[in-house]
Simulated assay, not measured.
Amino acid sequence: MSVKIAKNFKKICSTKNIYCYSMDIKQIKKDELLKLIGDLSKNFYVTLYNGDIIEDLGIYTLPVTIFLDKNNKVIDAIGYEGQYYVKINRYLDYLTGKISKDEYEKYSNTSVVDRRRSILPEINFIKRLIRDSQKDDAIKRLSSLKLDNLTNFEKVKLSEVYILLQRYKDAVKLLEPISDKFIDAKFYLSLAYYNIGEYEKSLNLLKNIEKIYPNKRRLYFLLGKVYKSKGDFKKGCEYFEKSCEQNLIN
């Protein structure tokens, strides 16, 4: 995030008296970070993240602020859309009882927040809920999304949600028209085809992107599953072994 947003985030944490963790994915040294945003307060912590934030958490739009309850259950997330700083302050006012739910929702539905921005933060939050075994909450939030006029990239990300919810035919319907535009669209379409038993279609797509798809580990693993389902156990084992080799290297 920008230095300005980082400073605003620290200010919110101090004035609202809540515990905050700022996850850094650039591996910047703590001393260098403090020079930019100033000293840390007693309730503001900085942590480094060594993994792949896209692969592990499904977060594509940064910054994103995730809210947890006292049991560490995810209750909401606010991405960088509209007036990020204002919206977080307003949401915390609602959580701490300073404004009612009706007041917060009335604010959220006004033009103060720019709703023309990407819905990627909402989509990624729904994926997080599913992975945290909060499927009912995820389905409820998904039903509230406006899914008209999506960009092709948003369609690819939404297809991941459908696949996680085992709504494979919905994913196929979403991806088939754009499969020639995104390499990830081809991969997720092949995954959806596999799950509805269309093994030949799945295989054709996977072989088409085998040499160029960046995440070889999951590509090889899915190829192994497709060949196994087709009865070609020799080929399946070959690709499972390739998947394991990639895993060890990475």
Rank of each mutant, 00 (worst) to 15 (best):
E241A: 03
I25M: 05
S14A: 14
C237N: 13
K106P: 00
I212S: 14
V226Q: 11
G38R: 14
K173S: 15
N204S: 13
F221H: 12
E81T: 06
G51A: 13
L150D: 04
L92S: 07
F221M: 11
K173G: 09
L48S: 14
A192K: 00
K155R: 04
L92G: 06
V226S: 08
D69P: 13
Y193H: 07
D31W: 07
Y227K: 00
R116G: 14
G197M: 11
I59E: 04
T61R: 02
P177N: 09
P214T: 15
I119T: 06
Y60I: 02
L57K: 12
G79S: 04
N149T: 00
L158C: 00
Y104K: 00
R217H: 08
R131N: 12
S108R: 02
K106V: 02
T65Q: 07
Y194L: 10
S159A: 15
R167V: 07
N208F: 14
Q166G: 01
R217V: 12
R217W: 05
L92C: 07
L191I: 04
K235T: 12
Y188R: 01
D69R: 01
D69K: 00
L248D: 07
D184F: 11
L164R: 01
G58Q: 04
Y85R: 01
T61N: 05
S133M: 08
L222D: 07
E176C: 05
R115A: 15
Q83P: 05
K225P: 02
S144T: 11
A138I: 11
Y84A: 00
N149H: 06
I209Y: 08
N124F: 05
L68V: 07
K207D: 15
K10H: 09
D137W: 11
N204V: 13
L219D: 14
I139Y: 06
S133W: 10
Y49M: 07
V112N: 01
R117T: 05
G51I: 13
C20R: 01
L206W: 14
N208R: 15
D232R: 04
K35I: 15
K70C: 04
C237Y: 13
I25G: 03
R167G: 06
E32M: 09
K30R: 11
K181L: 11
N195L: 06
N50P: 07
I196T: 10
D132A: 05
Q246W: 11
I25P: 03
Y49C: 08
K157L: 03
E103L: 01
N124L: 01
G51K: 13
K10P: 03
Y21N: 06
D69V: 07
A6Q: 14
K73A: 11
S190P: 15
K10T: 13
T47S: 10
L206F: 15
I25W: 14
R131L: 09
A192P: 04
V156L: 00
I126N: 02
Y94N: 10
S159Q: 08
K242E: 11
K30W: 08
L36N: 07
G38S: 10
D76S: 05
L223D: 01
L62I: 15
